[in-house]
C-alpha cells in the first residue's frame, strides 16, 4: 500500500518518536492540522495493514545488560528451511530470523537468527539449542559476534 499525504506526514512527525505529553495524539493532530480522532484512526489503520509493526519502546540491548550479540547462521536443506525457520524464530531468545541467499563459496548459510545474551557463554548455550532443533538438516553453521557498533541511527525518511 502507498501512504497518502496525511499518512506520510504522520510518519514524518512520529519517526523520531511519539510526543511525551499527556495527549500525544492531540499534539500530533495540532501539528498536522487534522482532527485528533483522525490521527488515532490512521495509526490504527497502519497497524492493521502492517505499515506500523507496533507502537512501543525500543530498548538499547547494552543498557539492559545484553552485551553479547551473536548472528547465528545456518546452512539448512532448502526443502525444510521454511518450516524450521518458523520454529527457530519462535524461540524466545531469537529476536530476528530470516532466510537469505547463500553466497558460495564464501557464505554457504541460508538461515540467519539473531541471539542476544548477557554473556558469550549464554549466547553459545542458546545457539546449541538452535542446533539441537535443526538436527542433521543443518549442514554447516557459524556464529558471528559483534565486536563493535559502528553506527546505529535507524531508519529515517526525508520530507
Amino acid at each position: 500500500m502507498t501512504p497518502d499525504d496525511v499518512d506520510r506526514r504522520l510518519i514524518l512527525a512520529t519517526q523520531a518518536g511519539l510526543p511525551l505529553v499527556p495527549r500525544p495524539y492531540d499534539a500530533l493532530a495540532a501539528q498536522l492540522g487534522v482532527a485528533s480522532d483522525e490521527v488515532r484512526h490512521r495509526l490504527a489503520a497502519m497497524l492493521d495493514s502492517g505499515v506500523i509493526r507496533r507502537i512501543g519502546a525500543v530498548p538499547n540491548h547494552y543498557a539492559l545488560g545484553y552485551t553479547a550479540n551473536g548472528m547465528s547462521v545456518w546452512d539448512v536443506v532448502d526443502s525444510q528451511v521454511d518450516d524450521l525457520g518458523e520454529r527457530v524464530g519462535a524461540l524466545d531468545f531469537v529476536t530476528h530470523c530470516y532466510r537469505r541467499p547463500r553466497r558460495a563459496p564464501l557464505w554457504p548459510y541460508n538461515l540467519f537468527a539473531m541471539v542476544h545474551g548477557k554473556s558469550r557463554d549464554e549466547v553459545h548455550d542458546k545457539v546449541r539449542q538452535i542446533a539441537a532443533l535443526l538436527g542433521d538438516v543443518c549442514r554447516a553453521r557459524d556464529l558471528l559476534f559483534s565486536t563493535r557498533i559502528l553506527k546505529k541511527s535507524g531508519l529515517r525518511i526525508s520530507a
Partner: peptide, 18 residues
C-alpha cells in the same frame, strides 16, 4: 531516552509496506 537506555519510543514502521 535522554540516557539512551531506550533508543526510541513510538511507532515502528515497516519500510517495505510503504
Amino acid at each position: 531516552l535522554d540516557a539512551r537506555v531506550l533508543t526510541r519510543f513510538g511507532p515502528m514502521f515497516q519500510i517495505e509496506a510503504i
